[in-house]
Amino acid sequence: MKFDHAKPSVIDLDMTPMIDMTFQLIAFFMFTINFNNDIVNKDVQLPVAEIARPVERAMLRPLFLNVDREGRLLTGTDVGNIDLRDATQERKLIEYLSAEKEHILDEMYAKFAKLDESEELKATVVIRAHEDAEYGPVQDLIRTCRVAGFSRYSLRAQLKQRPTQ
């Protein structure tokens, strides 16, 4: 009987399909990754509104204000959270909004070179409040924004249909 004593050859695995697939997946994840986590808080469960319009792209940087279930403004900055139900924190809120307004005004100066003093503040305030938050703190927040000079507001909601109960 004759045996083949030839040396086993190196098996060459074709890696091309796997690398193709992996790069496809990476490309998908890269395009869908959300870098707005600091301004769009995922813990805020938005209310549902079937008639809400799709979000338009703002001309200037919008001011995102996230309000949680307990009525706290989640600034996401060093300022920390501001309890909107606590009257003693009103000063902190005013200072925060004033600082944000200054940033937006600087942006307006940079973008349009010249700013008419009579022109209103063009930035949109985006209110993202938790669906179970009380309306009172949200109302106070909007009033403070109006005092700070903001006049355009976008109330955010989920577009999906609420399941029938």
Binding site: L46, A52, V55, E120, V147, Y153, S154, R156, Q158
Partner: peptide, 15 residues
């Protein structure tokens, strides 16, 4: 992320 929509409201600034 859930799809977000907006309800636009204009409220004049308080001066």
């Amino acid at each position: 992320a859930p799809v977000e929509g907006e309800i636009g409201v204009n409220m004049p600034a308080i001066t």
